[in-house]
Design a protein around this nucleic acid. Structure first.
Lengths: 338, 338
DNA sequence: TTGTAGGCGTTATCAA
DNA sequence: TTGATAACGCCTACAA
């Protein structure tokens, strides 16, 4: 028994040729209304579902996009991914995704796999360890959009957030509530995101006449534990600070965890600002002051950029810089709203 | 200019026929070692990447699985999805995913799309509003695994968690710490998960000689706000309870938010238990006592079940019931570990 | 208005 | 050990 109904089956059943079936199915004009009606009726009765792999091969287009991310379970990327899928669905595209676990090797493999799948385009959030793979993609002329990252050394389509502004807003806010020694728990600055936030941090310090103190700026690996441990370590060393600006909300939650354990009050003793505004940031206690990124929107726009490139409506090297917004909550302002 | 290198290009360049190329590429035995070496060298030089759409058409197998979920950005499903992708990657499968947003319509459409894509199999987390679509899939003989849900009325391959046990453990724990009036904020019991947790709740009450009080059991929609509002409403009505068992951690966080605002102490006045053990449950304050589900594992096992079905190693109607575990934290035990 | 034939890129069969 | 050819399911010229 064959698994799927084909246009040949419909043709036989309806007593017409296969391309009459094709015409009916594709709403082509040059076909008799009666014939069409009959063919469609038969197709429906037989439960015909068009084989997308065959259409892909024929057209050289798959209507599939590839999405390559660090980690789809991370609260930031999981929302971005959702936004991508929402936008893709609207345009009748499907999404294949692969995680890289922050490994350049896996990123490279994922790209090859996606090319093998003949995806019409890709959205990639690169590790930024190297960028040879992205360069290759660009040379091969395969449409793609880089997400969440800016490459100084490459001229490729990118969507990322205005992280210099984010870093600036966060730092300025801390200064404005009277903090002077602002610890910055940053990510690694070989990544554009971390570099930009650092620029924003420095810009705000400068603007308010505060000097940049190297002992207050630390680059750490992703993860709650690393922020938690770093804060504990610095407290032990006796480094003095009255506030912390964190690279992301998970760091901020880790930092707050460490501070609480040491009996340090947030925000009274030390104020904390995060970044991203992940779903849980408003629910934790104290609720988190943070720089908000509209992650669903970033995903949607990433798809729309890619779609624009695919349909030649968008230039090939457009940069799309999303705005960010400071959200003030309890981790910097005590008894907010009273 | 053609976009991709084909075996024909390699054949021409290497001066052999296309199926000699195919043999070399597929490691077939009947080929001269020298020829093979040369072909592979040419393929490499030309940057050949095999077209998976063509192979899929030829074989009738795609090495793609479809994953259909309520919401991939939800902290539960995002981890399950990651587990699926991890396991799939190991077996050289790719994952196409679609969200249903808890709409049966979208679920049905997603299934059709996946069939159109000729995925080798699907993992579906159904809305359970209806199950006609699942039944159809079963009749069509398309391999699939139902995830996170049990259908009494269907005999299909399923992976879900032992939620009766989970409900029992949570309730028993609350009773053992001296609570007698246990509010149960449940999901809708047309879903098997909610029904099973309710069974567990009742079982524990019965075991300890407590009577089931309807006014303490409420079915609410997903979302922080709904739990928050329900708790506020019940407090206002003057319903008395000394503890809450929540359908999931997000409910629990909502409940705790409402209690805190009313100046009620958790766990001293009211103890709270959640369900799922999402990533943030250990970081919030008070940290959350909850029933842990190993979500990554559930995803991995779901894929392995499906793969087993695809390779005929697994029976067609296997049920895989995952164990759950009670994780005790501060929301039920004050000053834990002191 | 309808049908025939060719081809998308690959692999498998069969003959050389 | 190799090559010619057909086939997977679909769509599109072109012919009838």
């Amino acid at each position: 028994m064959k698994k799927f109904v084909t246009i040949r089956d419909i043709a036989r059943e309806a007593g017409v040729s296969i391309n009459t079936v094709s015409r009916a199915l594709n709403d082509k004009p040059d076909i008799n209304v009666e014939t069409k009606k009959k063919v469609l009726e038969v197709a429906d009765r037989l439960g015909y579902i068009r084989d997308a792999t065959a259409v892909s091969l024929r057209y050289g287009l798959t209507r599939v996009i590839g999405v390559i991310l660090e980690d789809s379970s991370n609260p930031f990327y999981s929302e971005v991914l959702k936004g991508i899928e929402m936008a893709a669905k609207k345009k009748k595209f499907n999404v294949i995704f692969m995680n890289t676990e922050r490994s350049y090797e896996l990123e490279n493999e994922a790209i090859k796999t996606m090319i093998g799948r003949r995806v019409d385009g890709m959205i990639i959030s690169p590790t930024q360890e190297k960028c040879d793979d992205i360069k290759l993609l660009s040379e091969k002329g395969i449409p793609f959009v880089v997400l969440g990252v800016h490459f100084d050394e490459l001229n490729v389509p990118e969507i990322y957030t205005d992280d210099e502004k984010g870093g600036y807003l966060a730092t300025k806010h801390l200064i404005e509530i009277g903090r002077r020694r602002i610890l910055f728990l940053n990510g690694f600055t070989y990544k554009s995101v971390a570099k930009m936030r650092l620029n924003g941090y420095r810009k705000a310090l400068k603007e308010f006449g505060l000097e940049y103190d190297k002992s207050l700026v630390h680059e750490i690996e992703e993860g709650y534990e690393n922020a938690y441990n770093k804060v504990k370590e610095l407290l032990k060393k006796g480094i003095k600070f009255d506030s912390i600006f964190c690279f992301n909300d998970v760091f901020a939650i880790g930092a707050i965890g460490a501070l609480k354990e040491e009996g340090i009050k947030v925000p009274q003793d030390i104020a904390v600002v995060g970044y991203d505004d992940i779903y849980f940031s408003k629910f934790i206690s104290p609720s988190l002051t943070t720089v908000k990124i509209d992650k669903i929107l970033e995903g949607k726009l990433a798809f729309e950029m890619l779609h624009g490139i695919l349909t030649k409506k968008t230039g090939k090297n457009v940069k799309n810089v999303l705005d960010v917004e400071l959200i003030v909550r309890e981790s910097t302002i005590d008894k907010i709203g009273e």
